[in-house]
């Protein structure tokens, strides 16, 4: 039987070739970003399409770090971290309710949560703008934090539910028999076991908030409260010539995402399937 032998060498070679192609496809754009970011200004045009720069420099990064980008970066960090932290806490409560209780209206709530993931979010961009404006909160970071938190809660809630579902109910019951109140059982037994899940949720939400752009464009028009994507886009349309600096800024924007990505790698499947709809 052919199946018992080794696969044909040509097939094996084809497989590795295909894998190499996928890796190249995934990495090339990022490589290009980094390449131009480290190319000295004077070489950008002459070596615009060379695959390997003849010289490298940190100048672009230095300049970016001395510019407004630092503020944009800070704003984005504030918005994304706050969103992630608040979302994780609130979604943990909801996910716990979904995982541990059977209550009337559960199906309705779950359908409502799914609905929020289906409709074009842009349908609410105008009403949100109006509401935020009438509250006098335009150009403030809290307006973004609250909006992003609400956007991410449904997904995060389902994700947290799947993590809670993985913790046997027996453990809580044992803790309660051992003398814990429900709160103590949560703190001493459930919380330590959910920490990885909580971390993954933080990572997913952070990544989502970090890259959101349309609502940020709509709600923030003053430079001092711009988030990184808005600032970068502004920069592009204002001086669309300084490639090196833009790319360096882009590389900086990539750093937090990559850190969180490395962190949530193990939970990718759970995150994508339980949320099912998140980007």
């Amino acid at each position: 039987m052919a199946a018992l032998g080794r696969p044909h060498p040509a097939l094996v070679a084809g497989k590795y070739l295909a894998l190499a192609a996928y890796v190249a496809f995934a990495l090339f754009p990022l490589y290009w970003l980094v390449k131009i970011a480290v190319t000295p200004d004077r070489l950008i045009y002459s070596e615009g399409t060379r695959y390997w720069p003849s010289a490298a420099t940190w100048d672009n990064f230095r300049e970016v770090l001395g510019s407004d980008f630092l503020r944009f970066f800070g704003n984005s960090v504030i918005v994304s971290l706050s969103t992630a932290a608040i979302t994780a806490v609130i979604a943990a409560g909801g996910g716990y309710a979904f995982s541990r209780f059977d209550f009337r209206g559960k199906r309705l709530v779950s359908a409502l949560l799914l609905l929020t993931q289906m409709f074009p979010l842009l349908i609410i961009i105008a009403p949100i703008y109006r509401i935020v404006a009438s509250l006098g909160l335009l150009n403030t970071l809290p307006s973004l934090i609250v909006t992003y938190t609400a956007f991410n809660i449904p997904f995060a809630l389902f994700l947290m539910q799947s993590f809670f579902d993985g913790i046997p109910k027996d453990l809580e019951e044992a803790a309660m028999i051992d003398g814990c109140t429900r709160m103590q059982a949560l703190r001493k037994v459930i919380l330590p076991l959910t920490l990885p899940g909580l971390g993954a949720t933080l990572g997913f939400v952070f990544t989502a908030a970090w890259s959101e752009i349309l609502f940020a464009l709509m709600l923030i028009r003053k430079e001092e409260s711009m988030t990184f994507p808005v600032g970068l886009l502004n920069f592009v349309s204002k001086f669309s010539v300084d490639w090196g600096q833009m790319m360096a800024a882009g590389v900086l924007a990539l750093v937090p995402s990559c850190l969180f990505f490395a962190f949530i790698q193990r939970y990718l499947v759970q995150g994508l399937t339980s949320g099912a709809v998140k980007g």
């Binding site: 890796v23 754009p29 970003l33 045009y45 399409t49 990544t207 890259s211 752009i213 994507p229």
Partner: peptide, 30 residues
């Protein structure tokens, strides 16, 4: 390999967009 090929998913959308518009630009993109 898995980590590398999944990486694009983690790249912020605006950065993906900018990177590709640069890649498509004949001045600096191949």
């Amino acid at each position: 390999v898995q980590a590398l090929v999944f990486l694009p998913w983690a790249v912020p959308t605006f950065l993906t967009a900018l990177t590709f518009s640069w890649l498509l630009n004949p001045v600096i993109g191949p």
